[in-house]
């Protein structure tokens, strides 16, 4: 167990989580803590943020997949994460198509030629 790789965590709606869990990424560790969060209508933003932060501090997670509309809710937390690992990857959701202009990585990468970037 010590030499094994890192996990992929998911924060998403039911279909996204079900799909990725079907793919075999799900884990419930010894403390019964899952590496996924199913966001439903009644899930609070605080809960999402806390789960996201708990994933960030876990050493056994390498990639966090998050639906873009959920990432929008906790944008400040995602923008505050500057480390390479765990890498945060925004994916589309069933009801919200992917919007590249909202992606935190692309927002960091774009705007290379404007005067503001040289400040």
């Amino acid at each position: 167990m010590a030499g094994r790789g890192k996990l992929i965590a998911v924060i998403g709606d039911e279909d996204t989580c079900t799909g990725f869990l079907l793919g075999g990424i799900g884990e419930l560790n010894k403390n019964r803590k899952p590496n996924f969060l199913v966001v439903e209508k009644d899930t609070s933003i605080t809960e999402i943020e806390e789960t996201f932060k708990s994933f960030l501090v876990r050493n056994d997670i390498g990639i966090i997949l998050i639906n873009q509309f959920i990432a929008e809710m906790i944008r400040h937390a995602i923008d505050g994460h500057l480390e390479s690992i765990p890498a945060v990857l925004e994916i589309p959701s069933k009801e919200h198509p992917y919007d590249a202009s909202k992606d935190s990585i692309l927002r960091r990468a774009k705007g290379m030629f404007s005067a503001e970037d040289f400040r």
Binding site: R4, G5, K6, L7, I8, E14, C17, T18, L21, G23, G24, I25, G26, E27, L28, P34, N35, V38, G62, I63, S84, I85, A87
Partner: peptide, 30 residues
């Protein structure tokens, strides 16, 4: 087909290995 059907015990089948390559880049392999 809902989250209620998830098993009470899960074991991951996919892992990610991250290793540093040249130019401070990271390479991920599953």
């Amino acid at each position: 087909v809902s989250s209620l059907q998830y098993a009470s015990e899960m074991e991951p089948q996919i892992f990610v290995q991250a290793r540093a390559v040249e130019n401070d880049a990271l390479e991920f392999c599953t």
